[in-house]
């Protein structure tokens, strides 16, 4: 049986792991290579690495960091942040990423999704969607949560799946860093709307939150950052808990 994935996420700024609340107030959480190695030892199911500053000048530093992490881990590795075109994707894959996550560029040029998935295969193209609830529904934000766009999150999810995205990394900006639990309603709505896997992100704080997101929203994977970085929970603790609750996980 396909198991549910537990995915630690490294938000990277200037070469360090950082974490904020609702995308703001960033705190240092360690050296990315060290942190990645620890998660590999804890048998995390995958690692996501997001360059949250994503400035073009730092591109070569970023590639170097991706290489340094990739040689140290034996689990799937997804990299995102500032990916603009096919050549950025190729560079990251060549540096050791298994999947590349696209966000802003996909909104600006949806065709990038279809071109990339034809070129490299759907299985390595992840579309990250940052979502905030507003009066008239779930809205998509780009540029690291700074810029709202006139896109409904559910419609956009269906569109990216249709264009050939292999997976959706769905972050609730309202829940991000709050540790109040995942946005179950949002995750369930998107997960049932598309025929590709959905990674739930934003809000993990306690063990029960992981159970809820799998049992009640149909997510295929749960991503978390601060609970793991600050050692409030270990990947193993989460998996043991889920196993006891009857959720299929890999121990």
């Amino acid at each position: 049986m396909l198991t549910k994935r537990i995915i630690p996420c490294l938000d990277i700024k200037e070469g360090r792991v950082v974490k904020g609340v609702k995308f703001l107030g960033l705190r240092d959480a360690g050296d990315p290579v060290e942190v990645a190695r620890i998660y590999d030892q804890q048998k995390a199911d995958e690692l996501v690495f997001l360059d949250i500053t994503a400035s073009y000048e730092n591109r070569s530093t970023l590639i170097g960091l991706v290489e340094a992490i990739a040689v140290n881990i034996y689990m799937p590795f997804t990299v995102g942040g500032g990916v603009r075109n096919i050549s950025d994707i190729r560079d990251l894959l060549n540096a050791g990423a298994d999947k590349v996550s696209i966000n802003t560029a996909a909104v600006k040029l949806p065709e990038l999704i279809s071109r990339a998935s034809l070129k490299f295969g759907s299985q390595c193209i992840v579309v990250a969607i940052d979502v905030k609830k507003e009066a008239d529904g779930w809205k998509v934000y780009i540029n690291g949560g700074r810029t709202p766009v006139d896109l409904d999150a559910v419609e956009w999810s269906k569109q990216v799946a249709g264009l050939g995205a292999g997976e959706i990394l769905l972050t609730s900006m309202d829940y991000d860093g709050t540790k109040d639990g995942y946005d179950l309603e949002l995750t369930k709505t998107i997960s049932t709307a598309v025929g590709i896997p959905v990674i739930a992100s934003g809000g993990a704080g306690r063990l029960e939150h992981f159970y809820e997101v799998f049992a009640r929203s149909g997510a295929d994977a749960a991503l978390a950052a601060s609970v793991f970085h600050y050692q409030e929970l270990s990947v193993k603790q989460v998996k043991d808990y889920l196993k006891d609750k009857g959720v299929p996980v890999r121990l």
Partner: peptide
């Protein structure tokens, strides 16, 4: 869900 992604 397609692709089949994850640990099986």
């Amino acid at each position: 869900k397609i692709p089949h992604i994850g640990w099986n």
